[in-house]
Design a protein around this nucleic acid. Structure first.
Length: 269
DNA sequence: AAAACTACCTGAGTGC
DNA sequence: TGCACTCAGGTAGTTT
């Protein structure tokens, strides 16, 4: 589920409730996430949550001492509910705050993660290799053009490569390539600088629009208040069974790198 | 070095 | 109803 817009939606939702709050109690109902939740990770009772931010798809929760690093994996979501609200199925972690509210982490597939570091979280080995943020100026035409040079890989796998640009997952890669009119299977190395500039703007526009609508809910994702993300209704190719809304050609589904790509064979070349 | 593939999980949906 | 099967938003780690 969660790509950059869903993670951004999540941090915007939790930040007002957790920033400035002291952690009263930590409950780990199931520590078997992508990596086992370490004991030191949950020994944070009494600490203050000072800030919540995002790097790629990682959520950084800065404490008065140390940082929690969360990842939502494929099926993770967070909610804010009163302490005492009965846990839902797959609700593995709960941070009870002094305000009487609790941050609840639910993740049916358990591909998510919760880590702790007392060093600079951006230097953590999981984050240090990440490419630029797609909404930042560092993700420029010159940068992407250089990254694509001499690459035989398909453009879709390039923009989904977190070392090249972080936060773009399967849905938004498909959607941005549709908006840019680029065939997802096209070799990255052969695409002109001009078209890459269009692709960068398409990625930014797609991500911004999705953030505005609270992300995309296919199955599990919810905003912090429990509502789904509404960008699903704006999807133009991902999972779309109907003909292309622009030209009427049937949307094609192909498998690239074990992932489904959806595209319009007429609009995308 | 880069590309291809595996593994980690649960649940929804499909076809018989 | 139920069983067997496929597929799903991510990504680290291994193999080719």
């Amino acid at each position: 589920m969660p790509e950059l817009p869903e993670v951004e939606t999540t941090i915007r939702g939790i930040a007002p409730h957790v920033c400035g709050q002291k952690i009263k109690r930590v409950i780990v109902r199931d520590s078997r996430l992508r990596w086992p939740v370490a004991k030191e990770t949950i020994e944070i009772q009494g600490r203050m949550i000072e800030a919540v931010s995002r790097r790629g798809k990682y959520i950084l929760m800065q404490l008065d001492q140390g940082t929690l690093i969360w990842h939502l994996g494929m099926s993770g979501s967070m909610r804010i509910l009163p302490v005492g609200t009965p846990p839902e199925k797959h609700e593995h972690i709960e941070l009870q705050l002094c305000s009487g509210l609790a941050l609840k982490f639910r993740d049916p597939r358990r591909f998510g993660a919760l880590l702790y570091t007392d060093k600079d979280p951006l230097q953590h080995r999981l984050l240090s290799q990440l490419g630029p943020e797609p909404l930042s100026h560092d993700f420029s035409t010159d940068y992407l053009y250089a990254a694509c040079r001499n690459k035989g890989a398909a453009i879709k796998s390039v923009i989904m490569n977190s070392r090249i640009v972080t936060g773009v997952g399967n849905i938004y890669a498909c959607e941005a390539l549709f908006s840019a009119g680029i065939d997802p299977t096209r070799k990255a190395g052969g695409i002109s600088k001009k078209r890459l500039a269009i692709l960068i703007e398409a990625i930014r526009d797609t991500l911004r629009a999705a953030i505005q609508r609270g992300g995309t809910t296919l199955q599990n994702f919810t905003q912090v208040d429990g509502k789904p993300g509404y960008f699903r209704h704006s999807l133009q190719v991902y999972g779309v069974k109907e003909p292309c809304g622009v030209c009427g050609t049937a949307i094609r589904q192909v498998v690239q790198g074990q992932r489904s790509s959806y595209y319009c064979p007429k609009c995308q070349t």
